[in-house]
Design a protein around this nucleic acid. Structure first.
Lengths: 302, 302
DNA sequence: ATATCTTGTTCTCCAAATTAGAACAATTGA
DNA sequence: TCAATTGTTCTAATTTGGAGAACAAGATAT
């Protein structure tokens, strides 16, 4: 391999935070990464990353070198893929990190369509609900559902993400149907773990905001699981429409306090700032933004 | 090898004007160059150089690609050699094309000193009097002795290049010593072949310009040879001081019409415009400019 | 018109380069 | 204190890439 490949290995080590993680992400042995890095340092006559056992840190020279070569690597990628894409069908790999529920239920079919349009592309999907640092982990982009976008990254909104409260008919028959937000305090909930999911602000039809206590009998970090528990009558759930839409349509769940509204989130594709975005990645983002848009099909079905 | 090395091979093919010459300059087999170029074109999905048997021409895509990657290759070279040179003794290669006479008599000792100061450098010297296209032939720089500098290249003057007229004592005893430029028409000359060397403009002490006919009994393209012929009494010679200085000092030749002057040329180092000049090359140019300067040692000895 | 020379292509063999994996030292965390 | 993890180094295996031969085709010289 060559000079630019050595540089790319170095960049990966820096962004991954270590040789072992870089090796995992690059799919090569850590001995190979170690050797490539050592040879780059030898060629430059200076240490780029100071390593002790179990830690590695950029030196001052390494930091400067990293800033400079990052631009060069992007330029080469841009020059070559712009030329290639002018002449050819899209090829290459796209690494995406997406939340589990959204990924399984919505991105799957969408990716299927996209790949049919661009059969020479390869998609590498990471489905999980953990927070992903796309630079550190070497992703092209990630889907994030949130209110605020991180200022250090670029984001493209692809659709709104509304929430509704719902419960099973059996549960409501047993516990009664809440008429006002205050009534909620007499009920049980299944809620998301972590963060501040248990503390929701609900806005009633008159525009008044409420902050009801919602005692959780079941807590989990997975929306599909919570949906199952709600359908089984274990409590009411506040959940995204993109999760609950089919259960509502089937009558397995019934919307509660439908005139009230919950804080609205958005789904964004995020990608690294100041980094060349290959055309195939841009096309995928455009494709998804168009496919979902401001009134996605699951909201239209309600 | 890698992506950047493929690009460097491509650049060399473009600038050399063909795969065979590029292979010669790179020191690898033309089959290897052919294969590298083909693989680069395959990766980009487009033809960069259209080849028929015995000719090759840049395509439109190739021209654009060449312009863009040239900058990138320079940037990488700059980033890495600036970092390297900050930390280390100078290393690397310098390829220089120099005129034969000047190279043998003056650059040799100078290079010897320079290499003693920077022992890890490697000098690749091409000595000839032919016109060298430094970009096409892959030189870092060339020494050129001329009046005008080519506008498409960068030049750094390293010293003036004065000419004098001289003849052997025997010749002058036999033929008489010319007193005025007009007297020259009664004499024989040994002169440079090609160009307009046989048509000199001499300026007398009063500032008047003369254009004497100087019949040549011996013509050659090498100044050292002409010096020998002049010392042997075959005629008078107009020659650079850097060639004739020792023969004058030794009494083998005597200056003729010393109050007159000849068009003054300069010695320049020339190097490619818009191309990163490694520090080692810049240091060599500085070294030579300082070593010779406005009154080089051979002019001081006269 | 023909022969020779030169360029670029393609293929095969072999040497060189590079990776995987094992073994190890050393630090960190349980 | 022990186990886990990181990074380094070495060796064997695998992959890559160059050299050189053979060839096609165009240009040049005779």
């Amino acid at each position: 391999m060559g000079q630019l490949e050595d540089i790319q290995v170095f960049i990966r080590v820096v962004e991954a935070g270590g040789i072992s993680r870089a090796a995992d992400q690059l799919g090569i042995a850590k001995s190979a990464v170690s050797r490539r890095l050592s040879e780059l340092e030898k060629r430059l006559g200076t240490r780029l990353i100071s390593r002790t056992t179990r830690t590695s840190n950029l030196t001052e020279a390494g930091r400067s070198y990293y800033q400079q070569v990052l631009k060069v690597v992007d330029q080469v990628a841009e020059i070559e893929s712009e030329l290639h894409d002018t002449e050819c069908a899209l090829t290459g790999n796209i690494r995406i990190a997406v939340p589990l529920s959204f990924g399984l239920q919505h991105l799957g079919p969408a990716i299927d369509l996209f790949i049919k349009q661009h059969p020479q592309l390869r998609i590498d999907m990471d489905l999980s609900d953990r927070h992903v640092d796309i630079v550190e982990e070497g992703f092209d982009l990630a889907l994030r559902i949130s209110e605020l976008k991180d200022s250090s990254i670029q984001a493209r909104k692809i659709c709104p993400c509304h929430h509704v409260m719902a419960a099973s008919p059996d549960y409501l028959a047993q516990m009664g149907v809440p008429q006002t937000p205050k009534d909620l305090e007499q009920h049980r909930f299944v809620t998301y773990s972590g963060g501040q999911s248990g503390q929701w602000v609900i806005t009633d039809a008159g525009g008044k905001r409420h902050n009801p206590t919602m005692p959780a009998s079941i807590v989990a970090n997975n929306g599909d699981f919570l949906l199952q528990m709600a359908c089984a009558g274990h409590g009411m759930v506040v959940t995204p429409t993109f999760i609950v839409w089919k259960s509502l349509a089937a009558g397995d769940l019934v919307q509660v306090l439908p005139d009230c509204s919950w804080p609205s989130l958005n789904a964004y594709f995020i990608y690294p700032r100041n980094r060349y975005l290959p055309r195939r990645v841009r096309l995928l983002i455009d494709f998804m933004a168009e496919r979902y848009g401001d009134r996605p099909y699951w909201d239209q079905a309600m």
